[in-house]
């Protein structure tokens, strides 16, 4: 029984989330191969070869895979699928984009966003924005699965897998990449940060988010926001933590001026330690916080920054 894991990367470096998807593959059990599809992505292949428990790295290095367009990548994965019983990708924007296409081309349904593995055909996944947890058995012969990284701990990188170059080129020819507009930041990405400090509607405006900068600098934290703050136009959407934004589970999550709407909690309640700063003692965020402080954030933030 073999498992194919799709590597998340940007052609230069392997995303650490892939190590968590491999952990899910190990929980299923079987011979694990990694697929690196990209352009000039040899450094990613080398990094993938070091992942613990991986026996083979397949590298499809071609310009048609440079931007990992769903149309092209799904054809590649479908072509390789014959050798595998399970195909896994990380539930990030790339995997979410192309994997259901793979499932449809293989005539199976996809099991999305798993957070646990019960057996080789039974998986645990959140539904209703995490307000219920379903145990789902796949009745299809092949399992096409996306893995939510907050459910698994990264495997170590002490392996030395064989690297095999593929010469398959699958070009659907009906889509092309136009441009990327990536947010440039010196801070860690929300998905990768071990500390996150997020602001909500209580921040009152976008300028006040600067109050979080000093604390984020001292803690090496990423800065996030609630949907209320994004919808109010304070900060861009890529900062959004919540069911409709990023799902995160850092070691420390500091919620500032965030009331704790269900949709926000769904995105951060798996954090190891949650701190809430809010002036409303009735705010629902305090029901999930390990440490709460009832205070005006405009007093609390400068004091916290000075005492770290």
């Amino acid at each position: 029984m073999s498992i194919l894991v799709f590597a998340e990367h940007d052609n230069n470096s392997l995303k650490a989330d892939t190590l968590k998807t491999v952990a899910a593959a190990q929980a299923i059990g079987g011979d694990i191969h990694i697929l690196v599809a990209g352009s000039n992505c040899q450094s990613v292949a080398e990094a993938a070869a070091k992942i613990n428990g991986v026996s083979k790295v397949l590298v499809a290095d071609n310009a048609v895979y440079e931007h990992q367009l769903a149309e092209n990548v799904s054809l590649l994965v479908t072509e390789l699928a014959g050798d595998y019983e399970h195909i896994l990708a990380t539930a990030l924007t790339t995997g979410k984009n192309f994997m259901p296409r793979v499932a449809a081309l293989l005539d199976v349904t996809q099991i999305s966003d798993i957070i646990g593995v019960e057996s080789s055909d039974t998986f645990i996944r959140p539904i209703y924005a995490g307000n219920a947890i379903a145990t789902v058995q796949s009745l299809d012969s092949k399992k096409v699965i996306t893995v939510r990284t907050t459910g698994f701990d990264a495997v170590v990188t002490d392996g030395s897998a064989e690297v095999v170059a593929l010469d398959t080129v699958t070009d659907a020819g009906n889509s092309s990449h136009v441009s990327d507009e990536l947010t440039v930041s010196e801070r860690p990405e929300l998905g990768a940060a071990s500390v996150i400090i997020s602001g909500g509607r209580g921040m009152q405006n976008g300028d006040n988010f600067k109050l979080l900068d000093g604390i984020a600098d001292k803690l090496g934290a990423a800065i996030g926001a609630s949907r209320a703050a994004v919808d109010a136009g304070f900060v861009p959407n890529d900062m959004q933590v919540g069911q409709t934004g990023k799902i995160v589970a850092p070691d420390l999550y500091i919620a500032v001026g965030i009331s704790g709407a269900i949709q926000h909690l769904a995105g951060m309640k798996d954090s190891k330690v949650i701190v809430a700063i809010n002036k409303d003692p009735e705010a629902p965020i305090f029901q999930v916080a390990d440490y709460g402080i009832v205070a005006d954030l405009f007093d609390a933030l400068p004091e916290l920054e000075s005492k770290l």
Binding site: T135, V136, S138, L139, K269, I274, Y291, G292, I293, K307
Partner: peptide, 27 residues
Amino acid sequence: PRTKTLKVTPPAERKAGIIVESIDELV
């Protein structure tokens, strides 16, 4: 059907922690 839902459970409840009185105590 291609899937069978074996069970649906509520998510693990996260217990409320404590309210601290000052930033010093929090740190």
